[in-house]
Every structure is written in structure tokens, then in C-alpha cells.
Design a protein around this nucleic acid. Structure first.
Lengths: 147, 147
DNA sequence: TTTCAGCCTTCCCATCATGGGAAGGTCAAG
DNA sequence: CTTGACCTTCCCATGATGGGAAGGCTGAAA
């Protein structure tokens, strides 16, 4: 099977499949005389696995781990679970951050007159110094204040 | 004021500030004799604005729009509101997608024995063809099935 | 048999926001 | 005058993906 067929069967694009090969997620066994990648059922099942894992938001690196476990006869399911829980944590963190943004935005939008009045609480908030951004990693360590 | 000071005052890194200049978000008026960028209070307020907007998750492109509106004396607040609402929509979409992933993952994690048993519902789910991924943009249009 | 569409290959570049680091110039304090 | 902390520009990397060029292969129709 050529790459286009493999793409159609797995739900991925040919581009993605080549990329996954380049980073070692898959290793199609051979090439045709013309240099075409050849995919067998084993490869397809791996590609489908990758597709599913991407659907769940796993990074390609995490998917590499999952594939290793998947092909290990003697894997411990606890290791798979760990990966999944770690990913859930990442998702929770991202969701939390975005919900915070969303909440702030919704508060601002609610009090915005949305008229042709230039007065705008949203811009006012963005230009307000006193937001609780007291410290951050860029607030330099050693600065020659004398400069 | 040099870039380091501007960074410290705005909460951004020097790298970011240079980047924002390179894409036109800010235009520091001058350079010192040695070629150092010079920032005044006006620049700092813009940088703080950018910092706040990034905190709310706006893209740099959106921030460009916001800055334009901010400096327009005759802006209509409705335009600012539109930008904010559009961003809220984007956030909602991302949150929704991630919550869906999270939910699926949590269901799988819950039934995972998490032992040294190789039997694992998570891997089983990932390798299961019959997930509801019936159609997608990669499922090729014109394919020479005969190949 | 030639032609041509539709595959395939590799290679480079773009996205988005950011960081790392090299190579080199500047400034101020000791 | 040295030194260290700063500044400059330039290139490269991240992560996952797409776009597209230049070129080769295949198979079916003319």
C-alpha cells in the first residue's frame, strides 16, 4: 500500500505520515522499486493508533511512549495510566488558564457599551498598570539601575 | 530607557520586545549613539498594554488591532467588543475541545487497572478502529483505487 | 506507443510566540 | 584599562502541520 492509501485508511495526511516516520514513530518496512514507501496492515494499525491518540490531544512525544508500551508484550498498564493522567493534568492546567482568561474577558465585555462611544472598559483594563501582575520571570535580576 | 529597563517595567522579555518591534506592534522613536533602542513612557505604556493583552490570550495579530483602536481617538467601543467576543469564541472552542479529550481520558483512566497487568483499556481504545472518526479532510478525494 | 493525470519522492519555507546562543560593540564602575 | 553587564543583529530551535517546487513513477486512455 502506498502512502496515499495509508493516509486515507488512517485518517492522517501523507505529510503527517512522512513526518511521523522522520521522527521515528513509524518505520515502514520497505520501499517499492521506485522508492515509494510501502505500508502493511501493521503500519496502518500504528497509524490509526497515532490518529486516535492525537484526537485525545497527546503530543507526538507522548505518543511515542504509548507506542512503545503498546508493542511491549510485558507492559504494565500502570505505566499507560501514568501517561494518561499526566496528559489529563496538562489539559486541566490549560483549561484552567483559558477559563480564567475567558472569565475576565466576559466581565469586560459585559460592561462594554458597544457603541460608537470611544470610551471602552476593555481598553481601559488593558492599559491599566495596576493589574495583579506583580512578579514575573522577566523582571530582571541584576540590573544596573544607575543606567 | 534601554530595552532591559523597558522589559523589567513591562513584564516582557527583551527578546519579546524586539520581536514586537519587528512585526510592527511598537515603534520606539530612536536609538542612542551606540544603536541602543530608546524607550519612553509612551512606549512603556504600549508594552504594558501588550503584556496585559497576552495575559488574556490575545494573539499578537489581535493585539495589533487592539493597539490601533486604542490609539484612535474616535474609535467605537463596539469594535473593541467585537474583537474580545471573537477571542472569547476561540477560547470557548478550545476549551470545549480539551474538555472532550479530558472526559474521554478520564473514562479510560477510571477503568484502567493500573497494575503490572499488560491488559489496558487505554491502549485498547487507542487501537480500536471503530471510534467515531468516520470522515475527515484527509480521506482523499480522487484515489486510483486500482493501485 | 505516447501522453497525461495523479500519484510519489525530497527539500525548503511558513506558521505562532518564544527562547537560546554566537559574535561583536558599548558603557560604567573599580 | 579591565571587566561584567548590558546592548546589537543574525541564525536556529521548538511542535505539528501545511504549502509548494522540482522531479520521478505508474497506469490507463488515445
Amino acid at each position: 500500500m502506498n502512502i496515499g492509501q495509508a493516509a486515507a485508511q488512517s485518517g492522517l495526511s501523507s505529510k503527517m505520515i512522512r513526518h511521523y516516520e522522520s521522527i521515528g514513530l513509524i518505520k515502514p518496512k520497505g520501499r517499492s522499486a521506485a522508492g515509494y514507501r510501502l505500508f502493511n496492515e501493521f503500519d496502518i494499525s500504528r497509524l490509526k493508533f497515532i490518529y486516535q491518540a492525537r484526537t485525545l490531544g497527546f503530543s507526538l512525544e507522548q505518543i511515542g511512549q504509548l507506542l512503545l508500551l503498546w508493542q511491549q508484550e510485558d507492559r504494565a498498564s500502570v505505566n499507560v495510566k501514568k501517561l494518561a493522567e499526566q496528559h489529563i493534568d496538562e489539559l486541566n492546567e490549560k483549561i484552567r488558564a483559558m477559563q480564567k482568561m475567558k472569565q475576565t474577558l466576559e466581565q469586560l465585555v459585559e460592561i462594554c457599551p458597544a457603541s460608537d462611544d470611544p470610551n471602552c472598559p476593555i481598553l481601559k483594563s488593558l492599559s491599566n498598570d495596576e493589574q495583579s501582575n506583580t512578579a514575573n520571570c522577566h523582571s530582571a535580576a541584576k540590573i544596573n539601575q544607575s543606567r
